[in-house]
Design a protein around this nucleic acid. Structure first.
Lengths: 230, 230
DNA sequence: TAATTGGCGATTGTTGACAATTTCGAGGTT
DNA sequence: AACCTCGAAATTGTCAACAATCGCCAATTA
């Protein structure tokens, strides 16, 4: 529940969060065309606000619009995901370094509490699911915010994370190793607590490039399965 | 003339580029409110397309919108600029590394031709002006494009560079040392030509952090002058 | 006199009808 | 049979009127 923009009172705002949800959950499939008339009637609003909502999602990079040809949900093929992770590594690396340099003691404390909470969730029955679905983002969210760099925060939370959520949600059915990830999170948190910017950035970059490696393999497996099924 | 989006046939598209120009040149001052009715009549269009244009600029981070309270041109104070340059260093560093890793020979050639052209412009009478206003961007544009990472390209060209252009255009009256910048550009281009990603990233980061240092000093001087005038 | 509240004006949000453009299919031609 | 052209339907873009919300100023009250 990010909802960065505090715009939930206006119709276009409501439509925007609803559309975002629909896209992230896959209710609107990747590459699917967004018919203005259809969606407007489905949401019970006029086409005006709906168009603005679509433009808002365009800003979040969740849809691509072509004049006179309509808007489609963005397509995340393997190439795009590789690009996304590469950019993410650079930006989150920076965020992590800045967080280490200037997070307040209270914020660091919250960070560790987050980790404890996640550990418990994982111990629980369906913890793995929860962790991979949204819990993981709490950690990265908190670090991004802790960077204190508003532009960086906007870029990460407002754009990259939406795409990541979409990708992750739609591949959440496959198993994931949550153990290593949590251990890496702890290491990162400790580097931040010690104010070691160099180490914090290094660990975060390694964490993300590892996540990409894992995701990349998974996509290959999925592609192979798909071929075999046919 | 970036105009990434090939949308110039629709009214909202035209209004968008016109607004962008007005903001970058300072014809619309920073922090100024954008009245829908006023701008619509000034552009000879209806409020509908104009609203969409404003939302487009919101995506470029050139305006900030608050529901029921209107849109204002973004305010670039020193803090925001520091944030911008920090993010830019990370992203252009990455772009430069990737460009070094995989730019084609033809692209590298174009890069050097660009540098030659810039050198001549500087030699000319008002070369310094031209260089600082737009010519410099050609160089960074080309490297961003050469990274081959579409997401990175969108982020740099679609968002960061617009803000930089605005900032630079509006401070273009002050003197700038163009010599060192051009020399650094040459060094970067050579690192790219040799495929040395590490060096290319290092040099680009240094180039940008140096640019920020120079810009930062200039802002301080300006602030001091302002104080003395009063 | 200072703070509060009420209403008035201005601005933004929303709507449904209308215009322009693209797309898709039918028909004819080579 | 394949290709091109033309036209109609569907979709997007634009408009002007209407409704809702916010900010400001004045009147009122403690």
């Amino acid at each position: 529940m990010p909802n960065s923009t505090a715009t939930e009172k206006t119709l276009s705002g409501k439509a925007s969060v609803r559309l975002t949800q629909a896209i992230i959950t896959g209710e609107l499939a990747q590459g699917q065309k967004l018919s203005e008339a259809d969606l407007a009637t489905r949401f019970g609003i006029s086409r005006g606000p709906l168009r603005e909502a679509i433009r808002e999602l365009e800003g979040l990079r969740l849809v691509k619009r072509i004049p006179h040809a309509g808007a489609r949900v963005v397509q995340l093929d393997k190439t795009s995901l590789a690009e996304l992770y590469r950019v993410r590594e650079a930006l989150e690396g920076l965020a992590c370094r800045m967080a280490a340099e200037q997070m307040s003691a209270a914020e660091v404390d919250t960070l560790f509490k987050l980790l404890d909470s996640h550990e418990q969730d994982i111990a629980a029955a369906d913890g793995a699911r929860y962790f991979q679905r949204e819990g993981d983002f709490d950690f990265h969210f908190h670090i991004a915010t802790g960077s204190g760099n508003q532009m960086l925060i906007d870029l990460l939370i407002g754009e990259l994370y939406q795409l990541l959520r979409m990708c992750r949600y739609q591949t959440s059915h496959v198993a994931r190793r949550t153990g290593p990830a949590l251990k890496q999170h702890r290491q990162i948190a400790e580097a931040i607590a010690e104010g070691d910017g160099d180490l914090a950035e290094l660990l975060m970059r390694r964490h993300i490039s590892g996540a990409w490696k894992s995701m990349s393999e998974m996509l290959d497996n999925k592609a192979r399965e798909g071929r075999n099924e046919q």
